[in-house]
Structure formats: structure tokens, C-alpha cells
């Protein structure tokens, strides 16, 4: 378990080191696209420190914030700690992949597709992040 966490940590950080900060959501950072409000941008400040064991509340708060900035969610009041992405927020399968990508960015981790496909609610996402020692 510990070994796999280290491997994942290395895998996660290796390409990241070579990537400019703006490379996150590169798709939206081109000059023409820049006129539009980015749809998925984390507003929280990210601290790159040693894994500090994130609290459930903090994880949930950051995920809820992230969803609030996702323009597909029309009613931000529906976003809670137990919101289901499709049933409660009206997101489809493509949206859900985008949300999980944003969660990866937010917590500086990489989630394999098979595991990502199991994350279809805020609750599931929080559980998943809690189980990642290298999430921060």
C-alpha cells in the first residue's frame, strides 16, 4: 500500500514538474477562449506541502467550490456533501469526466479511469480523496 502510494506520487509529480502551471486546463487558456469565463477553475489557493492529512470538511468544501464554478450546474444551492452528479446536479457522463479531471487538478493526484468511473457523487469523491495519502 505504502509502496503503491509512493509509485503513484512519483507518477503524479513527474509529468507535473515538466508542465508549466498554465498547462492545467490548457484547453481554455488560448487567447480566443480566454474571452469566456473558464468553466472549471479552482478558486482555492493550492499549497504544495507535504501530505498533511486533509480533513473531510476541507475536502468536501473544495469539491463543492469546484462544482459551483462549473457552469453546467445551474442551481448552486443543490450542491451539498451528498449531491449525486447526475441525479441531483443534472450532469451527464461527459460532464462527470470533466469534474473528476478538475478534482485531480485540485488535489494534485491522478485517478485511473476505472476508479474515476466509480466517482459519481460528492460523497464518493470525498471518500476517494481521503484514501489518497498524496492528495493535498
Amino acid at each position: 500500500m505504502f509502496r503503491s502510494a509512493i509509485v503513484r506520487s512519483l507518477r503524479a509529480s513527474a509529468p507535473r514538474a515538466a508542465v508549466k502551471p498554465s498547462a492545467s486546463f490548457q484547453i481554455r487558456s488560448s487567447p480566443i477562449a480566454a474571452q469566456f469565463t473558464p468553466s472549471l477553475v479552482s478558486q482555492s489557493i493550492r499549497f504544495y506541502s507535504a501530505p498533511a492529512g486533509l480533513s473531510k470538511d476541507e475536502i468536501e468544501g473544495r469539491i463543492v467550490n469546484l462544482l459551483k464554478n462549473f457552469d453546467k450546474v445551474s442551481d448552486a444551492s443543490k450542491i451539498t456533501g451528498v449531491s449525486h452528479f447526475s441525479n441531483d446536479l443534472g450532469l451527464d457522463s461527459l460532464d462527470t469526466v470533466e469534474v473528476v479531471m478538475a478534482i485531480e487538478e485540485e488535489f494534485s493526484i491522478e485517478i485511473p479511469d476505472k476508479e474515476a468511473d466509480q466517482i459519481h457523487s460528492v460523497e464518493k469523491a470525498v471518500e476517494y480523496i481521503q484514501a489518497q495519502p498524496d492528495a493535498h
Binding site: 509529468p15 515538466a18 508542465v19 508549466k20 498547462a23 490548457q26 484547453i27 487558456s29 488560448s30 480566443i32 477562449a33 457522463s93 461527459l94 469526466v97 470533466e98 479531471m101 485531480e104 491522478e110
Partner: peptide, 25 residues
Amino acid sequence: FEEMYDTVVAYEQGGYKKVNPLFVP
């Protein structure tokens, strides 16, 4: 064209993980 360009750049820099699910649609 822009989507193709941006995705090629993102892929070149970050690999599969940077490919947006909306790329093909």
C-alpha cells in the same frame, strides 16, 4: 481547429490525462 490545436498541445505536455472528454464531440 482551435480545439484540435489546444488538445494536441495539452496532450504533448501532459499526455492522456489532459485530454478533455469533450474533445471528440
